[in-house]
Nucleic acid binder design. Structure first.
Length: 544
RNA sequence: GGCCCCAUCGUCUAGGCCGGUCUAGGACACCGGGUUUUCAACCCGGCGACAGGGGUUCAAAUCCCCUUGGGGCUACCA
């Protein structure tokens, strides 16, 4: 029975790395009949946003990673926001202080930086020098009177610490290489390290599953558990997901792409761009010189304005690109982990049923979007009609597609006609023409040239003929349309493409759309004829 | 720089703990062909890896060491 927890800090959207951690927390708990707890680590007052926690929860729910206990699902271990547990942490800080296992310190950031710099110059690892005589409460009063910052550090014992890791085996650390790290910040909030250890104990967490980036923190955590008389949970440090450029996949990947795009843009109106991003030009300059990174909404807005595609990193990015949560879950489950057997396409339930912690591997993995696309294609085929419809409607809503709000029957037809589509966005792209007014169809230049104007406008000639035939049809449905188009092709001694493509471009402006018979049927006779007329006029058929 | 982790096709991985059954399996990508009213989907075929060097052993992808390469951490962030 494993009690696991996912403990995000609400600093932005949920990203791939976080989602993967949360997934394995869920798998482990479900497989063993345990519990999965969500805890919000909002101990950094400067970086947390109220909406971010909500966003992270929405993203988890969208993925189908539902917690058993946490915000919105209160349980015995609450509250689940660390900012609401300050008194708890203070009690344990007291305990450590009284036991002489922690001590006050008053260093300024400047002084700390100087010490680090000096250590770096000497090519030495910086270890905070513990004072020979630890400051007492009188020293604290004095420091406060002088308006100094007061922090508390943990006494890291000078001994070997062994981490027994489920995925990595035994990893040994030397206590003397590790600084007496800060556990209580000058603003009265605990640091992550401290709050995390306290809460894991109090919430009865038995298995800590997290990314390898936390491996180095673990000896410190274990030392604190010892000092406090806590149990040490089972640790599992998973491999990390890296992105194409190398390095841990992070939200900064998006900013990086945007930055390059901005630099490449000629004749850029910096003021306008900054205002679109809701930032100052100074901030924009800071971004360009690498001094700072704007937050997500700013990055997104500027990217949209410049029309650059950013790599998906956050869960919402994948949602907006038309991916299915099932595919995403399936895909990230197979990063740094493998299910038994050759089967790769798995549902969440199958992942739970077959979950086996000994199947983690230690190697970092690259997030391959092409493979994700393939997984998505498979899940598109697997999903039932109703769920696909509801996913599709959600998607149309967020991308503000003209098809948003269309009636279910039509959307179902569109979905059915889109068999083989790889993403929800594919369906939308191929069927948008149905939801756009005739006058607002945008004609793709290349396609018009290729199928309509080439060879003395043979495409337009075909269109004119098509219109006649269409009007003569006794009834308009898929069969009659098909029969007519095939008949015309045969009569003209050409392939069906020669007939269908001009018609396609006429009704949707491009050579890519739903199957043509179906398309015409859905559009209706009147609208189809109107679009043919429009096309004929626009490209000068009457003048020839 | 210091500390720590890792190393199988281009990518994700199986196999490794219990050395022989591995002339290394699967998936994605790629290439070639088929199907086809577009884009997809679909079908068939192909290319393609044990990082390098030392050991141990009758035998090493599998165990050990070194080198090289990649990654992480090195905050009053989590």
């Amino acid at each position: 029975m494993a009690v696991t927890r996912f403990a995000p800090s609400p600093t932005g959207y949920l990203h791939i790395g976080g989602a993967r951690t949360a997934l394995f927390d869920l798998l482990w708990a479900r497989k063993t009949g345990g519990r999965f707890i969500l805890r919000i680590e909002d101990t950094d007052q400067s970086r947390n946003s109220l909406t971010a926690a909500k966003q992270v929860m929405d993203d988890l729910k969208w993925l189908g990673i539902q917690w058993d206990e946490g915000p919105e699902i209160e349980g015995p271990a609450g509250p689940y926001y660390q900012s609401q547990r300050l008194d708890i942490y203070n009690r344990y800080i007291e305990q450590l202080l009284n036991a002489g296992k922690a001590y006050y310190c008053f260093d300024t950031t400047d002084k700390l930086n100087q010490m680090r710099k000096k250590a770096a110059e000497n090519k030495q690892n910086f270890v905070y020098p513990r004072p020979v005589k630890l400051p007492d409460s009188a020293d604290v009063e004095k420091a406060k009177a002088q308006d100094k910052d007061v922090m508390v550090r943990f006494c890291m014992p000078d001994e070997e610490v062994v981490v027994n890791d489920e995925v990595r085996g035994q990893v040994k650390f030397n206590g003397r290489d590790i600084s007496d790290f800060i556990i209580l910040k000058s603003d009265g909030f605990p640091t992550y390290h401290f709050a995390c250890v306290i809460d894991d104990e109090l919430m009865g967490i038995t298995h800590v599953v997290r990314g390898q980036e936390h491996l180095m923190n673990t000896p410190g955590h274990i030392a604190m558990q010892k000092a406090l008389g806590f149990k040490t949970p089972v640790y599992a440090h998973m491999s990390i997901t890296v992105s194409e450029g190398g390095g841990k996949m992070s939200k900064r990947d998006r900013a990086k792409v945007l930055k390059n795009a901005i630099k490449k843009t000629e004749g850029l109106d910096k003021e306008k761009l900054a205002s679109i991003g809701g930032i100052s030009t100074t901030q924009l300059d800071g971004f360009l010189t690498g001094d700072s990174t704007p937050d997500n909404p700013a990055v997104d807005a500027m990217a949209e304005f410049l029309n650059v595609e950013l790599p998906e990193v956050n869960i919402v990015d994948f949602f907006k690109s038309g991916y299915l949560p099932q595919a995403l879950v399936n895909f990230i489950a197979l990063l740094g982990y493998s299910a038994p057997g050759d089967k790769e396409i798995l549902t969440l339930q199958e992942l739970i049923d077959t979950f086996d912690p000994s199947r983690f591997n230690k190697t970092n993995s690259l997030f391959d979007r092409k493979k994700l696309l393939a997984f998505n294609t498979e899940h598109m085929k697997m999903l039932g009609e109703e769920e696909l419809l509801s996913r599709y409607k959600d998607f149309l809503e967020v991308v503000k597609s003209p098809a948003a709000g269309a009636d279910d029957a039509l959307l179902k037809r569109v979905i059915k006609a889109s068999q083989g589509a790889r993403t929800l966005a594919d369906i939308d792209h191929k069927s948008r023409f149905l939801f756009i007014e005739t006058g607002k169809i945008e004609y793709n230049k290349k396609d018009v040239e290729k199928v309509l104007l080439k060879n003395s406008a043979e495409g337009l000639a075909m269109l004119a003929e098509l219109k006649e035939q269409l009007l003569k049809l006794p009834a308009l449905n898929e069969e009659t349309i098909e029969k007519m188009l095939r008949g015309l092709a045969e009569q003209k001694q050409v392939g069906l493409g020669k007939v269908a493509q001009p018609l396609r471009v006429a009704i949707c402006g491009t050579t890519v759309s739903l199957p043509i018979f179906e398309s015409i049927d859905m559009l209706g006779l009147e609208e189809t004829v109107k679009r043919i007329d429009n096309t004929l006029n626009k490209f000068g058929w009457n003048l020839l």
